[in-house]
Design a protein around this nucleic acid. Structure first.
Length: 1056
RNA sequence: GGGCGGGUAGCUCAGCGGCUAGAGCAUUCGCCUUACACGCGAAGGGUCCGGGGUUCGAAUCCCCGCCCGCCCA
């Protein structure tokens, strides 16, 4: 793993630098550290915003999706960071001033959960966290854990070769990022977009915190419907004349009956008229609750009239009566909101934060139900069902399968729970709608897109758009200790005209003529401090100007919430002395990650940021101006809603304010959003610790090398949603690995060996070519340059469209199939004598190294160290200027002139390839050893038309002689493009059986082709409607097949 | 429930209106051929999930269905 850079500029190691000659084998571990040190020492990854401001370069920037400090990186990170590094390195080579900003995320709930678990395992924590640890002590434990994992993660990224601007590395809780969080919170609070609300949240009773919807998952579990008899206050007579003294409710959660405040019946239920407005008396609790009419109550199957009603799966289980528990069920809460008048008791919470029945958190009329207090919800269920049964109030129990929600982190069952939380009103037009408006017009399905933001692949724009169209207020408070503490101080006060002065009197007098008073502060007349008054009774926020002085009718209990823009201001106003207590909660992690495009660049106070982090270079002001908005973001699918959305909203909001465009009108934080595929195991499962199917990038780097891993991952980055990586356990090491990575390792080796060969030839023959730029003359030279020109164009297009597998595969084909299989083989006979060919070989290898560098930075850099010592004659049409310091990392991207693409050379060369392949085929089928030089019988005209190609054919196919004379002894036919030639001298004794087999197969193949082509031409519609060139092509093919078939048949007949 | 992706050679994937459907790995055969056995040369292997339709022509476009996966609710 790379260590911090040494002070002196490291030189290439002996292995790298022993002259142009390379060691026989490429062993990644012997080179990677040395190459890394040279990159760092030369500040190769350093972005200089001044070059952009002075007009010397265009900016290109990427923000790393900050990995959670919870755990080491896995292959998914390896993929994402490889792709980002490819982009960063390619753009750097293309002349962009490139910033790849690194950093890590504190990952509040995830990290706290992991550390808590770890402490329990180590025996340092028993019982409830909040009893065993103080806040500060626990945060210190997490801090230590964070330091450990941040180092691990950084080490992994460096081992992978990630060319981040490491001096600027950030952490979401470092002072610079913390200031951004503070500023953002304050601005939103001030603008009325952060509000307090009593809402039902997803409560994790194990972690004792609210969790976001996206931190939960659902699972089907076996449970029951219980049928509970609720006694009526007085008997009622139904339309059918019968009299009832109770109603029976069907419920899956009998334990929450302690919080019931109503019973609902469907208005279409015939019994409704007789019952609505009457009351139930809850058993044991003796609470009097009303019956209300609401269509939320599902009609029993027997009463259902419409199809929809009949098909409702709950109809089978329904009695027509539903217990309503607003504090413990989202649907019930919504029903209460529709019947505020009819349900005076509203929401009664009967659970404590640790998931036990409690009469201390909102429920007071305990009555005989005190027997349940203190039980867990599961215990309470059993006991409540038993008590109902004992009293004859349990009508029946039916088994039922139901979807339940669980917490991702603790796996505990989620309880809907009524609690005070902070929300961001993201539905405001300056937030979610502004995010959608940032999309490019062609990526919007509804509404107007006016921004530059594009998703790659484009289908993900729909996910982004749909999310904002349906977005709800974002709950940002978390009942945790690890995170950015909410900068709000609370005080509960009962406000009446008279108590107002008394409640706040100790501080109200603080004002003097020169300073604003405490009252001014509360009214929002003071910079950097803002107050909201939340009426406890209904959670409504009341305008401070109506509180001070208090308007009639607004008396009551209030939560006074003071938000301070800095701790200094909070201290200055002596809030705590005045009885205000700081909110114990922290912010949702995504709140700070949402600011990543701002906070990493020093926002909001770039001068202060420069002072805070001198290592980063003190140029935060230029950094923010040049690199926000960024160019590309590469991230995972599920992150679109969690992170991309919030960054977009915040960047547009805050930058809009900064740039005086108006909140919400600022730039989107990035131009392109690339969504990469998810790596799964061979069975299509997510890689995870619990499944034990994860692969550690460092293990792959150790066995295969960093480049091999990177290259393989790049080939896997197609535009599908998932890619599968079959995993196997290495019996020797016990570690997970995958044979897939052999692809990259073999490719790196191939490159290494090709380079060794080229260097050997270039070293051995040094006679200079004629002065001036080399004009390639030989067929292989013209051909390889043409192939190179095409490959560069394909790579350029692929990278511009985030098609990483296309880029990798193009490089693969160019190097392996074109350069190694054909070009290097073709030049063997001529390279020694041809100085111009040596120049082309050198230039082509140089260009290939440049093209491959973004994906395989280490091996290409090592080879380049050797290659760059050789003279580099210019080759016409190929622009590859020598790089600064002889380092590939600083080299320019290869550029070719359009003229380098040579269709004639390609056509001639493919005839050579076809002829050579045909000869090889005959050799293989007739078992003619490669070493046996054979004779090719070919008319003079045909030989002449091959031109330079003839020499290539004879050397590549080991043709001993070419003659126009007909063979005298045994011979076999080969046909190329409809022409027939013969091969002879194949063996001392010809094996006519093998030859017969070969020709028989050939005749069968050709007959099949002939039939197919004839069939196509016989179709009357084809000749009439297909484009003429298609028809002509088919005719040509048929003619060719017929010629070849005739030749093969004749030869077969001649054999007898 | 809504949205999205996928089902092509034994495996992992390209191809997304027109060469007789390709690559890498695996398999078989032959090779230490002036760099490379992590290699070279050759070969075998596919009702392109099923069923309809559009078209001169469909793996590719449309419709219906089946199966797998993901995201959101």
């Amino acid at each position: 793993m790379p260590t911090p850079p040494s002070q002196a500029t490291p030189q290439p190691s002996k292995a790298e630098a022993s002259g142009p000659e390379l060691p026989k084998q490429y062993r990644p571990s012997e080179h990677e550290q040395g190459v890394w040190d040279r990159w760092i020492a030369s500040a190769a990854f350093r972005a200089d915003p001044a070059r952009v401001l002075s007009g010397q370069a265009q900016p290109y920037s990427l923000l790393i999706p900050p990995p959670n400090v919870t755990a080491a990186l896995h292959l998914g990170h390896a993929l994402n960071n490889t792709l980002q590094d490819i982009l960063a390195r390619a753009h750097r080579m293309q002349g962009f001033e490139t910033l790849w900003m690194p950093g890590t995320d504190h990952a509040g709930i995830a990290t706290q959960a992991v550390v808590e678990k770890r402490l329990r395992k180590e025996g340092k924590l028993k019982g409830a966290l909040k009893q065993a640890y103080t806040r500060d002590a626990f945060v210190a434990e997490i801090q230590a854990f964070k330091d450990e994992y941040e180092a691990v993660i950084t080490g992994q990224l460096k081992a992978m070769g990630c060319s981040c601007d490491w001096d600027r590395q950030r952490f979401t809780m470092d002072p610079i990022c913390a200031r951004a969080v503070r500023e953002a919170f304050f601005r939103l609070f001030k603008d009325g977009l952060i509000v307090r609300g009593k809402r039902l949240v997803n409560w994790d009773p194990a972690l004792q915190t609210a969790v976001a919807d996206d931190e939960c998952y659902e699972e089907e579990v076996d449970t029951s419907f219980w049928y509970l008899r609720y006694p009526l206050e007085a008997p009622a007579t139904l339309p059918d004349g019968s009299t009832i003294d109770h109603v029976t409710v069907a419920t899956t959660r009998p334990e929450t009956y302690l919080g019931d405040t109503a019973v609902a019946i469907n208005p279409k239920d015939p019994r409704a008229a007789a019952l609505v407005g009457r009351h139930i008396v809850l058993p044991l609790v003796n609470r009097r609750i009303p019956i209300v009419a609401d269509s939320y109550a599902v009609l029993p199957e027997a009463m259902a009239t419409t199809d929809e009603e009949k098909n409702d799966p709950k109809a089978r289980f329904s009695t027509g009566f539903v217990k309503i528990t607003p504090a413990h069920d989202a649907n019930d809460y919504a029903l209460w909101q529709r019947h505020l008048e009819a349900i005076p008791l509203g929401a009664l919470n009967m659970m404590s934060p640790d998931g036990r029945v409690s009469d201390k958190h909102g429920w007071t009329d305990t009555g005989d139900a005190s027997v349940f207090v203190g039980l867990t919800m599961a215990e309470a269920r059993k006991k409540i069902v038993a008590e109902f049964k004992a009293r004859g109030l349990l009508a029946e129990t039916k088994p039922y399968r139901q979807n339940k929600t669980f917490s991702d982190r603790s796996k505990a069952e989620i309880e809907p729970y009524l609690s005070d939380q902070w929300y961001v009103r993201v539905t405001d037009s300056r937030l979610a709608p502004a995010a959608n408006a940032a999309l490019a017009p062609e990526q919007r399905t509804s509404g107007k897109g006016e921004g530059p933001m594009r998703f790659f692949p484009s289908r993900y724009a729909k996910t982004f758009e749909g999310w904002h169209d349906n977005i709800r207020d974002w709950c940002i408070s978390r009942q945790l200790w690890w995170g950015h503490r909410i900068p709000v101080w609370h005080k509960r006060a009962t406000l009446t005209e008279t108590t107002w002065q008394q409640e706040l009197a100790p501080s109200l007098g603080r004002g003097s003529s020169s300073r604003p008073s405490f009252g001014d502060m509360l009214m929002g007349c003071v910079d950097g401090v803002r107050t909201s008054f939340v009426r406890v009774a209904d959670g409504c926020q009341v305008d401070p100007t109506r509180i001070i002085p208090l308007e009639p009718g607004l008396e009551g209990e209030y939560d006074i919430c003071v938000c301070a823009a800095s701790d200094e201001l909070a201290a200055d106003w002596q809030l705590e002395a005045a009885g205000f207590a700081r909110d114990p909660d922290v912010l949702d992690t995504w709140f700070s990650s949402a600011l990543w495009p701002l906070s990493t660049l020093g926002w909001p106070d770039t001068a202060q940021a420069s002072a805070d982090d001198p290592r980063a270079g003190g140029d935060f002001d230029a950094l923010l101006r040049v690199f926000n908005p960024t160019t590309s973001l590469s991230t995972a699918r599920e992150i679109i809603t969690l992170w991309v959305s919030r960054m977009t909203m915040f960047n547009r909001y805050f930058r809009g304010q900064d740039l005086a465009l108006g909140a919400g009108n600022g730039p989107a934080p990035f131009r392109d959003v690339f969504i990469h595929a998810v790596i799964q195991d061979g069975e299509g499962r997510k890689m995870s610790k619990s499944l034990g199917n994860g692969v550690d990038p460092l293990d792959i780097i150790a066995t295969h090398g960093s480049d091999a891993m990177r290259f393989t991952l790049a080939t896997m980055a197609t535009n599908t949603q998932d890619v599968r990586l079959p995993v196997r356990k290495d019996p020797a090491t016990g570690k997970n690995t995958s044979e897939k990575f052999d692809l990259g390792r073999n490719f790196a080796t191939k490159l290494w060996n090709a380079a060794r060969f080229a260097l050997e030839k270039l070293e051995a023959h040094t006679a200079p070519h004629a002065p001036g730029s080399v004009i390639p003359a030989s067929l292989p030279d013209r051909w390889i340059l043409s192939r190179l020109g095409r490959a560069i164009a394909e790579c350029d297009a692929a990278l511009a469209n985030y098609e990483f597998s296309v880029y990798a595969n193009t490089c693969y084909t160019l190097l392996w199939n074109d350069f190694c299989d054909w070009y290097l083989e073709a030049l063997k006979p001529t390279i020694a004598a041809d100085a111009s060919q040596r120049a082309v070989l050198r230039a082509t290898l140089d260009a290939i190294l440049r093209l491959l560098h973004p994906v395989m930075p280490y091996v290409t850099e090592v080879i380049y160290a050797a290659l760059s010592r050789l003279p580099a004659p210019a080759v016409a049409g190929l622009d590859i200027p020598p790089p600064a310091r002889g380092m590939l990392v600083r080299a320019a991207w290869p550029v070719t002139s359009p003229a380098i693409i040579n269709a004639d050379a390609e056509a001639s060369f493919s005839r050579v390839q076809a002829l050579v392949s045909a000869v090889r085929e005959v050799r293989a089928q007739l078992q003619v050893p490669f070493k046996r030089a054979i004779t090719l019988h070919m008319p003079d005209a045909a030989a002449a038309s091959l031109g330079q190609g003839l020499g290539l054919v004879t050397s590549l196919a080991n043709i001993g002689s070419v003659t126009a004379a007909a063979p005298t002894g045994p011979s076999t036919p080969i046909t190329i493009e409809g022409s027939e030639f013969r091969l002879s001298n194949l063996a001392d004794q010809i094996d006519s059986g093998a030859e017969k087999d070969r020709l028989t197969r050939l005749v069968a193949d050709l007959s099949k082709s002939k039939a197919t082509l004839e069939g196509r031409l016989a179709n009357p519609g084809y000749a009439q409607k297909a484009p003429p060139h298609m028809v002509q092509q088919t005719k040509d093919q048929l003619a060719k097949a017929e010629t070849e078939l005739a030749a093969a048949s004749a030869a077969l007949e001649a054999l007898g």
